[in-house]
Amino acid sequence: MSASANHSANAANTARLRIWRGSERDHGRYEEFDVRFEDGDSVLDGLVRIRLEADPDLAFRFSCFNANVCKECTMLIDGNVEYACIAKLKPGTIQLDPLPNLPVLRDLITGTLSHKETL
């Protein structure tokens, strides 16, 4: 399944985000979104843009927005644990997965909080 944030986007400044979607690790799927970007934009910028323009249901955590302070936006980016707020968008496909070894809550959100801190 795929969706596009902007079908008319120019390939030179468009990244294709291949995002894991679902609520159970064994029953997920990938959805692809094309996002326009300017030099220097982060993967988090792309995710925020997808929520705004294509799919408001997409779930991921962040608070500080590109300042790398809150440390909430950790995810697997092309297989590496990274912060979405400092990883840069680039032309071509970038695959995003929830963190491994943690329960998946939904999409890119995993159970990173202590059980004492959640209902």
Binding site: R61, S63, C64, A67, V69, C70, K71, E72, L113, E117
Partner: peptide
């Protein structure tokens, strides 16, 4: 509503 001690302005 987010994560305690991680959001807000003080941390910034």
């Amino acid at each position: 509503k987010n994560v305690i001690g991680r959001g807000g302005a003080s941390i910034m």
